[in-house]
Amino acid sequence: MDVDYGIRKAARLGQTRLPDGRLLGWAEWGPVDGTPVLLCPGAATSRGLAFGGGVVDAAGVRLVSVDRPGLGTSDPAPERTLTSWATDIRHLIRERALRAPSAVGFSQGAPFALALAASGLVNAVAVVSGSDEIAHPRFTHSLNPQVRGMVDAVVADAVAAEDSFADFGDASALWELIITTSAEPDRAVYTDPVFQRAFRQAMDEAFDQGPAGYARDTILAMSPWPFDPTDITVPVDLWYGRQDTSPVHSPDLGASLTRMIPTATRHLLPTVGGSLLWTHAEDVLHTLLAHSR
C-alpha cells in the first residue's frame, strides 16, 4: 500500500504587496475560515512543499506557506534580516486577515518562525527538526567540522560567505547533500516517488530567481539571532527525531534550546528522523492547535 505523506496541491496561490512595493508569495491549504497556521519552509524550498494535506481540512486548519524574499515568488530583499522578515509577516497577517495565527518552522525555517514569536505575531510555535542558533557559544565544540567552518566564515566575513553560499547553491547540489546526509528513515520519505517529485519541484521553484535568496537564508541561519529566546512567552513545541543525522539541525536535538525558552516542550521521537513533519503531521498540528484554541 502506498504511504501518504500529505502532499497535496495548494488550494489557493497568491502574492501580497508589501508597503515597500515588494511582493510576498504564499500558498494555502485547508478552509479559508480555518485556524491560521503560518509555515516557514525549510532551506531552499518554495511555498509549494507543505505538509498535512490529509489532515488540514478535518482539523479546520488554514495552512499558509510563505516564500521568503528572493525565493520562489517573493521579490528579493538583499539586506533582509530575521527582524525584517517579522515586519513582512506582520503586514501579511493584516492583509490576509490571519487572526491569531500560530507558526510552524521546519529545518532552516525554525529561526524564522521563532522570530515571529519573539515579535509577538503568533500565539504558538512548532519547531520541527529545526535549525538551532548554531553560532551560539553553547555549540562551540559540538558542531560538525564542516558546519563549524561555515559559521566561522560568516563571523569572519559575512559578505564573502554569502557569495560562497551563492556559488554552491543550486537545487541539484542541495538535493544530493540532503540525500547523502540523511538517515535511512528520512531517505525512505524523500525518495518516495510522490514526495520526491514535490520536493524537487519546490527546490527548483526556490531557485527560480537564482541562488541569492538561499544564500541570504543561510547567512541568517548561521549568524547570532537578533532576539533572545529567553524572552519568548508563547508556547513552543520542539519536535525532533532521534534518528535525525542532518548536520545543520540542532546539534543536541533541541535539548539546550528547550532549557532556554521558558515556554518550550521538547518531543523527542525515538524511531524517526528529520522528516517527521510529514510522518507525524497530525501530532504536530493537533498539539499546536491545543495551544491556539
Rank of each mutant, 00 (worst) to 15 (best):
A97E: 13
R99P: 02
R99N: 06
S102T: 14
A103S: 08
A103L: 11
V104L: 06
V104M: 09
G105V: 06
G105R: 07
F106R: 06
F106K: 07
F106Y: 08
F106D: 08
S107L: 07
S107W: 03
Q108S: 11
Q108P: 00
A110T: 08
P111C: 07
F112T: 01
F112E: 04
A113P: 10
L114I: 04
L114E: 03
L114H: 05
A115L: 10
A117P: 14
A117C: 11
A118C: 08
A118T: 00
A118D: 03
A118W: 03
S119E: 13
G120E: 11
G120C: 08
G120K: 06
G120T: 02
L121R: 02
L121H: 09
V122K: 07
V122H: 03
N123P: 06
A124Y: 13
A124C: 04
A126N: 07
V128K: 10
S129P: 01
G130S: 01
G130R: 02
G130F: 05
S131Q: 09
S131F: 02
E133L: 04
I134C: 07
I134E: 01
A135T: 06
H136R: 06
P137W: 05
F139N: 03
T140I: 01
H141T: 14
H141M: 02
S142A: 15
S142D: 15
S142K: 07
L143T: 02
N144W: 12
P145C: 09
Q146L: 10
Q146P: 01
V147P: 02
R148A: 15
G149Q: 15
G149N: 12
M150N: 08
V151T: 06
D152G: 12
A153T: 00
V154K: 14
V155I: 12
V155F: 14
V155Y: 05
V155E: 13
A156P: 09
A156H: 07
D157L: 03
V159D: 13
V159G: 05
V159L: 15
A160T: 14
A160M: 11
A160Y: 06
A160G: 04
A161K: 11
A161D: 13
E162M: 15
D163P: 00
A166K: 08
D167F: 00
D167M: 02
F168Y: 13
G169F: 14
G169E: 07
D170T: 00
S172V: 10
S172C: 07
S172W: 14
L174V: 11
W175R: 08
E176G: 08
E176A: 15
I178S: 08
I178M: 12
I179W: 04
T180W: 07
T181D: 03
S182C: 10
S182D: 05
A183F: 09
P185Q: 06
P185T: 02
P185L: 09
D186I: 02
D186A: 10
R187T: 11
R187E: 04
A188Q: 13
A188W: 02
V189L: 15
V189H: 05
T191K: 09
T191L: 15
D192H: 12
D192I: 08
P193C: 13
Q196I: 03
R197F: 05
